[in-house]
Nucleic acid binder design. Structure first.
Length: 261
DNA sequence: ATGGTCGTGTTACGA
């Protein structure tokens, strides 16, 4: 099965571009971030009519995640444990079953800017909660794909102009260390392992401002982390860079992994 | 060069 992640930056604004992309991708399951919609306003029937099972976890105005799947989903859970007071919709899990069952965790990690400050504190606290949940997922000893917009630039080679990001919440040492702490639990960065010695990107986000796309001033912040059991099934992974050149695009592009499952 | 551009839901704020 092929599993993809796409930060669509607003489902209402992206309905046409997203529908077009879904029509030409061969992904079996897609996690979405920044749907920017409450569950009731999500165009559920539109996607169901195209054959997708739809599971949303939205909120008003900002954030919001969803799963679209052509394969059956079970055991859907919403929200990240560890803070009952957290009302931001950033996390959803489900089990998808093809030839094998795979646990999917779709996430939209907090941006954290400006840093330092309360938003950065929230980001780091959220990452600690994710680290704890990630350990539980590894303990399942089953194929798990934990994917989404991590809002983390893991290394200098994942950003076109590292010097512009040194003080940014996406690239600060504490952010990268927190990501590394999760990765080193035993996860595989699917896109990086596809090209371990790559020196530039592949980027997954280009800002709308200042002609970032035309200058290829991008960053790699959308990631697919695989449990060992999922990594053993990995057949291929990639970034659909060309989507950024489409009509009325998101500022992110889809990333994907194919598993022999 | 310290701006620029999006989306949501209003004219502010998050990214």
């Amino acid at each position: 099965m092929k599993i993809a992640s796409f930060n669509i930056n607003g489902v209402k604004a992206r309905i046409e571009a997203l529908t077009a992309w879904l029509g030409q991708t061969d992904a079996d399951l897609v996690v979405l971030q920044e749907i920017k919609s409450v569950d009731e306003a999500f165009p559920r029937a539109h996607f169901e009519d195209l054959g997708w099972q739809v599971e949303t976890h939205g909120q008003k105005g900002f954030n919001g995640v969803a799963i679209l799947s052509l394969l059956p989903l079970e055991d859907v859970t919403r929200g990240l444990a560890g803070d009952d007071a957290d009302e931001q919709a950033r996390y959803i899990e489900a089990t998808v079953t093809g030839a094998q069952s795979v646990r999917i965790a779709g996430l939209y990690l907090p941006n954290g800017n400006p840093a330092p400050g309360p938003k950065y504190d929230y980001k780091l606290a959220w990452m600690e909660r994710l680290r704890l949940r990630a350990a539980e997922l590894l303990a399942l000893e089953m194929p798990v794909v934990m994917l989404g917009d991590y809002n983390i630039i893991p290394e200098a080679r994942d950003v076109a102009n590292p010097q512009n990001w040194l003080d940014d919440a996406l690239f600060r040492p504490e952010s990268r260390a927190a990501f590394r702490a999760i990765l080193h639990q035993g996860w595989t960065d699917a896109v990086r392992i596809r090209d371990p010695w790559g020196t530039r990107g592949p980027f997954t986000f280009w800002d709308y401002q200042a002609g970032a796309w035309n200058r290829d001033d991008g960053i790699r912040i959308d990631h697919l982390l695989l449990s060992p059991q999922a990594a053993d099934l990995m057949v291929d992974a990639g970034v659909e860079r060309e989507v950024r050149a489409g009509e009325k695009p998101s500022d992110h592009v889809p990333v994907w992994v194919r598993l022999a499952a």
